[in-house]
């Protein structure tokens, strides 16, 4: 059986070449394990490999399927949820427009040949503060939209949702741990919120990677330098579950980010500080401490934009 002294949350790199079975073995887990792979959407049921990695002990919570059933059976909630998502799409678009201007201004100031260095450095700090303010205001607004949505729709009073929540809670009650896979972070976060899983996860050992790892942090940051039309801006998206603290999870960082652009990487590291940008590349294995902090030696983006390892607990 799983021993309580072991790390409660384990973050892994992408599982294209899976090592989940080894991790589970090392942690001494022998009981049933709940799986949350709602981020895979309609491929949620295609979990044969995942189940084999867990020696046939997986218990797929089927959150995506359950979410579809609720959308099918509760038109009022479905419409409200659709409105909420559209609102968030527009908010994200407008935030990105502002961010685009601010980021370009930042690059412009950085490229300025200074007559007095302290003047340029001061301007740079101001511009970085503008970017951080945009991030903070955006995430606050997103959080308010979520809160307003839950208040208006009162999901716990809706029979279909209440029933599904109870079923999920029952399934989670006697599992030894929870595995959260990658996938679409929007869908994963929505399903976690809809089924109110955070309070239960707070007391279960969790193994997560990809979008699953992002969802466990306090702040979900989107990033992709390999997009079809060139690098996209790193953008804050929403609050995560907050079980991993003071860390921004960057899954497949070396694949998705152009790490050779040190100046830009350094800007990203500074932008999200004091949170540390956690590099979850293939083979990564981070055992989060009891307080939800990442331990010394974790792979992070250094202040100079180069990959490094954290020196001590990322305390607040």
């Amino acid at each position: 059986m799983y021993m309580s002294a072991e790390p409660r949350i384990t973050l892994l790199g992408p599982q294209r070449k899976p090592n989940l079975d080894e991790v589970v073995r090392e942690l001494g887990m022998t009981g049933p394990i709940a799986t949350i792979n709602a981020g895979w959407q309609d491929r949620e049921v295609d979990d044969t490999l995942l189940d084999s990695m867990l020696s046939g002990r997986s218990r797929n919570l089927g959150l995506w399927r359950r979410m579809q059933e609720i959308w099918d059976n509760d038109p009022e909630f479905t419409q409200a949820d659709r409105d909420r998502r559209r609102t968030m799409v527009e908010m994200q678009e407008l935030y990105l427009r502002g961010l685009d201007h601010a980021t370009r201004a930042l690059a412009d100031i950085r490229d300025h040949v200074p007559r007095r260095e302290w003047v340029r450095d001061s301007a740079l700090k101001h511009a970085e503060r503008v970017v951080r303010d945009l991030d903070t205001r955006h995430i606050d607004q997103v959080t308010r939209v979520y809160a307003d949505f839950w208040e208006r729709t009162a999901p716990h009073e809706r029979p279909a949702i209440a029933r599904a929540r109870a079923e999920v809670a029952q399934q989670l009650a006697d599992v030894e741990a929870v595995v959260m896979t990658g996938g679409d972070i929007r869908v994963l976060l929505n399903s976690l919120h809809l089924f109110n899983i955070t309070p239960i996860l707070a007391n279960k050992p969790i193994i997560a990677w990809g979008a699953g790892a992002m969802a466990l942090t306090e702040r979900v940051v989107l990033f992709n330098d390999r997009a079809t039309h060139g690098p996209t801006l790193a953008e804050v998206y929403a609050e995560g579950l907050g079980l991993v603290k003071n860390a921004v999870a960057l899954p497949s960082a070396r694949d998705r980010l152009n790490m050779s652009e040190k100046t830009r990487m350094a800007t990203i590291a500074r932008r999200f500080a004091p949170a540390q940008c956690l590099l979850l590349d293939a083979g990564a294995h981070v055992s989060v401490c009891d307080q939800g902090l990442i331990p010394a030696g974790s792979p992070i983006l250094g202040a100079d934009g180069a990959p490094t390892t954290s020196e001590s607990l990322a305390a607040a």
Binding site: P14, Q15, R16, G39, G182, G183, D184, I185, R186, W209, G210, A211, M214, L222, F223, N224, A227, T228, H229, T232, E235, Y237, P251, S252
Partner: peptide, 14 residues
């Protein structure tokens, strides 16, 4: 096509 209707790449993390 990916310019007028970009896909969800930025939301999907393996």
């Amino acid at each position: 096509l990916s310019w007028i209707y970009p896909g969800p790449q930025r939301f999907v993390y393996e």
